[in-house]
Amino acid sequence: MIEQAVALSGILFAIGAVGALVRRNVIVVLMCIELMLNAVNLALVAFSRQWGDPAGQVFVLMVIVVAAAEVAVGLGIVIAIFRNRESVNVEDASLLRW
């Protein structure tokens, strides 16, 4: 079961990474980042179970907090950009790109 959990974590991380690279809707990109954080959480929980060490679960709590903070700030930025550019396409917010 641990092996399957780690493999599932890798699959979910790959889906999230490809989605963050491929999709142009910034809200979907943020959701893909959440998915990647969740994949990492799953790996932490699986290894915590494998070694019988609850420290991994404490790290998961920290990751959840960071994810919540990231979503709050990220969506604030999305709203600010939408107010200026009337768009949630990442291609339209390229002012700082090289």
Binding site: M1, I2, A5, L8, I27, L30, M31, E34, N38, N41, L42, V45, A46, S48, R49, Q57, V60, L61, I64, A67, A68, V71, A72, L75, V78, I79
Partner: peptide, 29 residues
């Protein structure tokens, strides 16, 4: 899956925070 991996607190928090709060914030936006 977290509950099956004996991480009961994390499983509950996962549903409360992610399904209950974070996705709702996405929907609000």
């Amino acid at each position: 899956i977290y509950v099956m991996l004996e991480a009961y607190l994390v499983g509950v928090l996962q549903i409360l925070v992610y399904a209950g709060a974070i996705v709702v914030v996405f929907l609000f936006v």
